[in-house]
């Protein structure tokens, strides 16, 4: 293994002092890699990201056990203002634009970790990655399409110069072509900027195509890990996460069946 940027050692997360959601999660993220985190609804993927970014706190959640080491420093339970300034930016699930701000104003909020510093070049950089945003820059984000918003929130995060970028289900609710475009850009950002990326996805097929390494999570625990090639070859992953894509025919009846079988497997 190469240079480790982020390491989670056996962390437990509890909401409101009683609801335990993560039960000893360990994972490590190599610098410069894309690491995917797969798992079904409610597995605890978003919670894992929030534990890292410090956004658990406003939701009354807490890392009660284990530790999170980033750049050799312990960061668990620190405030988000602090963690973002260390270079960790989480792109929230469901996009979350600032609806009443224009696209360009949204992007400018991305400079919050370094207020007062020049940002013009960064705007150019974002527009270079997401040309679709250029002609919308004066439009209110609330009136933009889902694809534009996903580009916006990734671009907004890039404005912060993240060292570690965490994306929570960027493909959610987007048309297949738009998903492909977004993933192509994610890969490009990783290659050109060397940004380390943690990618939470339901769309395992796309995630495994761009990621170097992956973890599978169920019920607040990591149940499987491996390189993307290993995971893609794993019969269980094939069955339960790539099912539709592997067989090539997405019949709704088959979806139901594989869902039932996954329940047994868990």
């Amino acid at each position: 293994m190469g240079d480790i940027l982020l390491q989670l050692n056996n962390i437990s997360v509890v909401y409101s002092n009683v609801i335990q959601v993560l039960k000893g999660v360990s994972l490590s993220v190599e610098r410069g890699h894309i690491v995917s985190l797969l798992g079904s609804n409610g597995a605890g993927k978003t919670t894992t990201l929030k534990a890292i970014s410090g956004l658990l706190k406003p939701e009354n959640g807490e890392v009660t056990d284990g530790n999170i080491i980033y750049n050799s420093v312990n960061i668990q339970n620190r405030a988000p203002e602090d963690i973002t300034r260390q270079g960790i930016i989480q792109v929230l699930e469901g996009r979350q634009p600032f609806k009443y701000l224009t696209i360009e104003e949204n992007l400018r909020v991305g400079t919050a970790t370094r207020p007062g510093k020049p940002y013009k070049e960064d705007l150019e950089m974002v527009y270079h990655y997401f040309p679709a945003l250029v002609k919308r820059k004066k439009a209110l984000a609330g009136y933009c399409s889902g694809g534009e918003l996903q580009m916006l929130v990734i671009g907004r995060a890039l404005m912060a110069h993240p060292q570690l970028l965490m994306l929570d289900e960027p493909s959610l609710g987007l048309a297949p072509l738009v998903v492909q475009e977004i993933f192509r850009i994610i890969k490009k950002i990783n290659e050109e900027h060397g940004t380390t990326i943690v990618l939470v996805e339901q769309n395992a097929n796309m995630a495994l195509q761009v990621a170097h390494y992956g973890y599978v999570m169920e019920n607040g625990k990591i149940v499987m890990e491996g390189t993307s090639a290993e995971l893609s070859d794993n019969p269980d992953v094939k069955e339960f996460y790539l099912g539709m894509a592997a067989s090539g025919m997405a019949k709704s009846y088959k979806d139901v069946k594989s869902y039932r079988r996954r329940k047994r497997w868990l």
């Binding site: 203002e81 973002t84 929230l92 979350q96 600032f98 701000l101 400018r108 909020v109 970790t113 907004r156």
Partner: peptide, 24 residues
Amino acid sequence: SSQGIFMRSVADNQKAALSLGVHV
């Protein structure tokens, strides 16, 4: 101004503002 835009971002979506490091 940046501060003004940060203020509006907090009013708009506090969680998203926090995720970008805005000092709420």
